[in-house]
Design a binder for these strands. Structure first.
Lengths: 148, 148
DNA sequence: TTACAAGCTCAACTTAACTTGAGGTCAAGC
DNA sequence: GCTTGACCTCAAGTTAAGTTGAGCTTGTAA
């Protein structure tokens, strides 16, 4: 057994709780990186664990992998994320979360107001006409809960 | 021009703001209904506008079409939704919304606590280990923001 | 040295919610 | 009577985030 510093995909999967296939996928998307052994197998530095942790947290916040990738790649020199970097990212993501919460609250309040009114008029219901339209932009599936 | 009571798909699309193809789609999913002219074209009663309005509001709340369909079909006798029905649905959906908001708040508070700590330890970070795991259940795409 | 687990690649499948396109019909004005 | 726009059906495409499987290679423990 070599120095305990290098991890195989299986080990990373185990320790991070994400599937091997997901790690392959993240790598293809440029979210994590590995080098290869002579036999073409992936080996990861320990920093990959922190990266994966960041990815998972960001996903729970509702950030897409594409955005996460952009954020990670925008770190100066593409270096391993430090405490400082994490501060920046988590602050930004917390702000996004705050916005989403605010949006949902607005919607809930509208819904609360509307209970009992039963109007649901296409033209007059405040729920339907107020606020930025989410839909109607380009093809493909819609973002399920909220657009930015 | 016949009595102004019957609407064509195009008219419903216009007045409701959803695409004709989406209306076809909703009909295939059993969310709305139509009858056909001699020439096999769809004609809708005005109640379709209220139904579509309900669908759109529910979607903004983050309810899936499948759940919306179930809710609509569970209305006694499949009748046109009344004020009463709308009350029931909107109350239930508001509660769901409340839960989602609460969940996001928990996440945000965790994120806030973690800012500055920079730990991101897979094993120790409270953000990573606390709370119900969302992922890891069955194949296919994950619900983007929140599982129920 | 021989199993057998763990890796590798690449293509295809999954879900949700629609959209797009092809190929053909219906209706209404000129 | 013909052209034009609105309709119709059905199949296939789109996005996100992975998973699943086939077919083949590595690595390691007995």
């Amino acid at each position: 057994m070599a120095a305990a510093t290098e991890l195989t995909v299986g080990q990373v999967a185990m320790r991070s709780g994400v599937a091997v296939s997901a790690l392959h996928f993240y790598e293809a998307r440029g979210l994590i990186r590995s080098h290869r052994t002579a036999g073409n197998q992936r080996r990861y530095g320990r920093d990959v664990l922190r990266r994966v942790a960041i990815i998972k947290v960001a996903q729970e916040v509702g950030i897409s992998l594409a955005e996460i990738g952009t954020a990670l790649r925008s770190l100066p020199e593409g270096r391993t994320p430090t405490r400082e970097d994490w501060n920046l990212l988590s602050t930004a993501w917390r702000d996004e979360l705050d916005q989403k919460i605010a949006q949902l609250k607005k919607l809930r309040d509208g819904l609360t107001d509307c209970i009992g009114c039963g109007c649901m008029s296409i033209d007059k219901c405040p729920l339907r006409n107020k606020g930025d339209r989410l839909s109607t932009r380009g093809p493909g599936a819609r973002r399920l809960l909220i657009e930015r």
